[in-house]
Design a protein around this nucleic acid. Structure first.
Lengths: 207, 207
DNA sequence: GACGGCATCCATCGATAGTTCGAGGTGCCG
DNA sequence: CGGCACCTCGAACTATCGATGGATGCCGTC
């Protein structure tokens, strides 16, 4: 018997997961949480698996909640279930101690299988997700330095090179220099393409 | 008796909606569609309300599907049910002929109420959404034309003016002209700033 | 039908961004 | 200490962008 805790701020999604697991005799949904804080609390009450959404309307986010849940001794496994497969999200979740990462549009069969493997201690990464993680490892050399990320962040806000230079107390030449490195690492050739690429890869917050 | 068609590419969400409406004796889910195309087909089979997601994994998107559904004589009402409340999405859905616009994190009660009002021909906009629409009307002077939005979308993907020109079969000069109008309306002075501003205002998809 | 308003289209020219070299300074690590 | 990675800057050059100004056609109004 596997006891499940569902943590998602969407009532509809919670109902869907509940309905889905109702068809499996050995899976029992023993709790629902609509916030990250609530999920952490309920995870202490004797559950085997936490199904965790990464996005919550407000307050603690899924990654942080996952970290807190995993801190406790004998903590349940956390299976992250989210909409997006951006690298930043995935990496954040895995670093926080998630045993698996699934997308919400995954077929039910896959979802149920993932719960069972997580319960037996195995890692369960959706194939598409696993591929991305691997790709990221292979191209880890193209990670931006903190200074480059800082510059890129300002570029994403629509600031000009001169403007960025003044903000960071640099010469315009230095800003351009950083940009050249950014372009190379992201394999693009303009600032707007760099921003687009960075968004895709999850280097920049979506909104 | 109200017959419902659920159109969403997430199995979990479909199950959740089904479970949710199962508690209401007068609401009957008579079909599910996982694609926009499928939703259009099934809408002809005698349903009263279509619950439509805007985002689909591939193929026809929700707005286009809504438009096609509403084209038919005696077409069912379409209730858009989505994750985001960006202006672009809302306006697109309403223009396509949606009777209502709800967010997926809305409480079930609100959702069920919306279905009933839509069935009786009323318009059902979530309060938060209605506010945004009104705000948009007030500042309607800065609304982008469809051509401008098209250009801006390509700019946000990091494409160059020449590239955009070729894609839209225009001269580069025309693309620049559209950009000038976009800049004026958004009160910015560079393409990256335009993209940043458009994101803030919800003219562009978050991810 | 003359009119203004608007969306779409185009061309020229100064301003900005990006390239390509160069180089000096720092801090870290084996 | 000698590499190495990172941050910093300059200067000259080219490509692209953005500003300015003008053209067309469509639509609704009076």
């Amino acid at each position: 018997m596997i006891r499940l805790l569902i943590a998602d701020d969407h009532p509809v999604v919670r109902a869907g997961l509940r309905a889905l697991f109702a068809t499996e005799p050995d899976l029992h949904v023993v709790g629902e949480a609509a916030t990250g804080e609530n999920a952490v609390e309920q995870s202490r009450t004797g559950v085997d698996i936490v199904l965790m959404d990464l996005q919550f309307g407000g307050g603690m986010q899924g990654a942080e909640a996952t970290r807190r849940i995993r801190e406790a001794p004998g903590a349940p496994h956390v299976l992250v279930l989210t909409n997006y497969d951006t690298d930043a999200d995935i990496l954040g979740a895995v670093e926080a101690g998630a045993s698996g990462y699934l997308l919400k549009d995954a077929p039910p069969v896959e979802l149920i299988a993932a719960v069972r493997s997580a319960a037996s201690g195995e890692s369960a990464l959706a194939p598409a997700v696993a591929g991305r993680l691997e790709a990221r490892q292979n191209s880890a050399n193209e990670a931006l330095t903190s200074r480059e990320a800082e510059v890129l962040g300002l570029v994403a806000d629509g600031r000009s090179n001169r403007d960025i230079a003044r903000t960071l107390f640099l010469s315009e030449a230095t800003v351009k220099s950083h940009l050249v490195h950014i372009f190379t690492k992201l394999q693009v050739s303009s600032r707007t393409a760099a921003v687009a690429s960075a968004r895709e890869r999850g280097y920049i917050r979506p909104a």
